[in-house]
Amino acid sequence: MIKLQNVNKYFYKNDPREVHALCDINLKIEDGEFSLFSGSSGCGKTTLLNAIGALDSCDSGEIYIDDTEITTLSESERTELRLNELGFVFQSYNLVPVLNVEENIGFIMKLRGFSNKEIKERVLEIASLLEIDNKLKLLPNALSGGQQQRVAVARAVAAKPKIILADEPTANLDSANSEILINMMRELNEKEGVCILFASHDELIRENTKRVIELSDGALVNDYKY
């Protein structure tokens, strides 16, 4: 479970350019949710996602992942948390260019110390689910954008994290590939029970998620559950 209490985040604090990026956010996200942070550009959805992902700090408030208060963690503890509890999908795929698809998918599992056998089995399982099992020996630059994003999703989900944070995962994809990706992520959510949080203004994602949390000027304005 993710819990946010009175979370505030400023950019350019004490500067004429000061922006109140997150205003008193209070939020609870249960395990296994398939939710979206929605809103116009600059509303704070990516900032909120990064704060939950222990990538960015807050100026005040508390963020809990299960029982761990993450705003007080050291840099190395945050890295450990990201490695063990979270999975990330970025807009620009960000695969390791010198590793093939199989190694990219197994990368986080390798970092977490899984055995080669476990990695191989899991990579095959996820790659089949995401229909990239015939691309395992290829380097990322030999794949299309949609395939690369599927590899990024596979990497995020392979080590079975509790939460996957996906920031604009469909921004670089055409509508057909976007649909394939979202369907696959929904399937992962249902099959693996992994909590997936999107930050996006893609209508397709909005239509497919079970909860939409709307932000405006850093404040939480609506919270719809379907």
């Binding site: 990538l55 450990e80 990368f107």
Partner: peptide, 16 residues
């Protein structure tokens, strides 16, 4: 540098 930022972001420890 972007690649390093991302792999740190996804949890790769500095020692590696």
């Amino acid at each position: 540098i972007r690649e390093f930022g991302i792999i740190i972001g996804i949890g790769m420890q500095y020692k590696y």
